[in-house]
């Protein structure tokens, strides 16, 4: 397991070496945070309590979304770009002669990246948002801890989805189309555009039951104190269930893909 620890630290440091890129990213997240916060304020002024949030909670939701956007790689920028490229060029073959597990390896890579982005591109926009707007911040340390656990589970789900998308490149040769579809679905179904609690009827229920809601909607609800006690346990079970199912599917697909490479030469 120490190997995967080294991999995770390595990827964290790798992103940490690009300070200007991080600074530019922080600026972008902050700018979008302001735009969306004003938009939400206008919307919630018209429709108070929309989706069960008051204005302060809605604006908090916006800044949480900006803070988690890069960590969850909802708009790309995760490990999958590199894995897809390695599959396309055939470099993936050279990964197979190493005594390491493909899925765990990339999970460690992506978690290292995600933790960097959580700190590098999450904390500062959130802090700026808290200065500029009246945010609903958790009152107790327990809520913070519950939230962070929730975020880590969300990262696992996010990784598991993108791992499946990346592996599709073994069959499609070019994974960029699948990646774009997945970003689009992720943007909407995670609740990045609007909280999923806003959508009525079947659409809302379906959206809330899909794995992407683990990535933003559920952590945001935990952050806002809307899930405590049993509701929190349910949220964890929902996230962990999706994580296990999707990671398991990734494992199966990985076995099939490896067999394909080993027999067909990619």
């Amino acid at each position: 397991m120490r190997l995967y620890g080294v991999v995770m630290v390595g990827w964290f440091r790798r992103y940490a070496t690009y300070r200007m890129a991080t600074a530019a990213g922080v600026f972008t997240n902050t700018a979008f945070g302001f735009i969306m916060a004003y938009t939400y304020t206008a919307l919630w002024d018209e429709r108070p309590q929309l989706g069960g949030y008051d204005v302060s909670q809605a604006v908090t939701y916006v800044w949480l979304g900006q803070a988690l956007l890069m960590a969850c790689a909802l708009m790309g920028g995760g490990f999958e770009d590199e894995l897809i490229e390695r599959i396309r060029t055939g470099d993936i073959a050279t990964d197979l002669y190493r005594p390491a597990d493909l899925q765990l390896w990339w999970l460690a890579c992506d978690l290292g990246r995600a933790f960097f982005h959580l700190v590098g591109r999450g904390v500062i926009p959130m802090a700026i948002g808290a200065f500029a707007f009246d945010l609903t911040l958790p009152g107790s340390a327990l809520t913070w801890i519950a939230f962070l656990v929730c975020v880590v589970l969300g990262l696992l789900v996010s990784f598991a989805i993108r791992f499946l998308v990346a592996l599709s490149a073994f069959w499609l040769m070019d994974g960029s189309g699948m990646a774009q579809i997945s970003w689009l679905a992720g943007m909407f179904f995670s609740g990045m555009l609007l909280p999923l609690t806003v959508f009525p009827g079947t659409l809302g229920e379906v959206a809330r039951a899909l794995p992407w809601s683990s990535v933003l909607q559920i952590p945001a609800d935990v952050f806002l104190g809307k899930r405590t006690g049993w509701a929190l346990a349910e949220a964890y079970a929902f996230q962990a269930g999706w994580a296990l199912a999707l990671l398991g599917a990734g494992r199966l697909l990985q076995t099939a893909a490896t067999r394909r490479v080993v027999l067909q030469g990619g």
Binding site: L3, R14, R98, P99
Partner: peptide, 20 residues
């Protein structure tokens, strides 16, 4: 093709081999 970590100092790649 390289198995080294592109963005990191050379010694980090060796630390990786150590564990791998």
């Amino acid at each position: 093709r390289t198995t080294l970590w592109w963005d990191l100092p050379l010694k980090d790649s060796y630390r990786l081999m150590h564990r791998m």
